[in-house]
Amino acid sequence: MRKQQTFSIFTGILRRDLKLAVRAPSQWINPLLFFLIAVSLFPLGVGPEQNMLREIAPGVIWVAALLAAMLAQDSLFRADFEDGSLEQMLISSRPMSMIIMAKVLAHWLVTGLPLIVLSPVLSILMGLSLVGWWALLLTLLLGTPILSLLGAVGAALVVSVKRGGVLLSLLVLPLCIPVLIFATAVVQTAGVGLAIEGQVSLLGALLALSVTLSPIAIAGALRVTGGAA
């Protein structure tokens, strides 16, 4: 019975947030457009030479994904904070970690997953090979949830700060550097035809670590900042 209840809060919040995302789509479509535009600026900035583009593609795509994630993450708790829904979650006796995981998952489904769906287009734009695209897909699949979780920690910390979006990036971007390093290395290594299992497993370890530890930090941060009037 208890287990079922715990599950019901997870699915309930998940459905609520997805419903809200469908009804107010600009919040997740805009960061996605930003991602697309940011990547297409690079060929214009450095020139259309295919080999050079292919070389910088992993870095460019991942840096753009990082910035887009920061833009999107600001809205994760802010709307709930402003209309008082967050208060109701904080004074609920249901497990806070479940509420948080449901919210982060819903948010990833509308902000992280579309990046993965867009990845073939980006690979073509940046001249990546098929192998490179597969590697990119794999890193986005493992890496964007980490960005969502780290971003959620930042979003929880700055939720009561007016116009906290830039501050969120200041706090979280340095923490995202390991993801950037390992993910781009995977795509580069795959590009030259070497084995990528090692780096991929490092990314997987980072994901496991952030899934376990971030909810604690997010819940703690929300209890500190989310109650502010």
Partner: peptide
């Protein structure tokens, strides 16, 4: 930056501590 952004000193410190 986080300390500077929060007007309430106690909240700022507890948020900073988590960071």
């Amino acid at each position: 930056a986080l300390q500077a952004a929060m007007p309430d000193r106690q909240t700022a410190w507890r948020a900073g501590a988590i960071l």
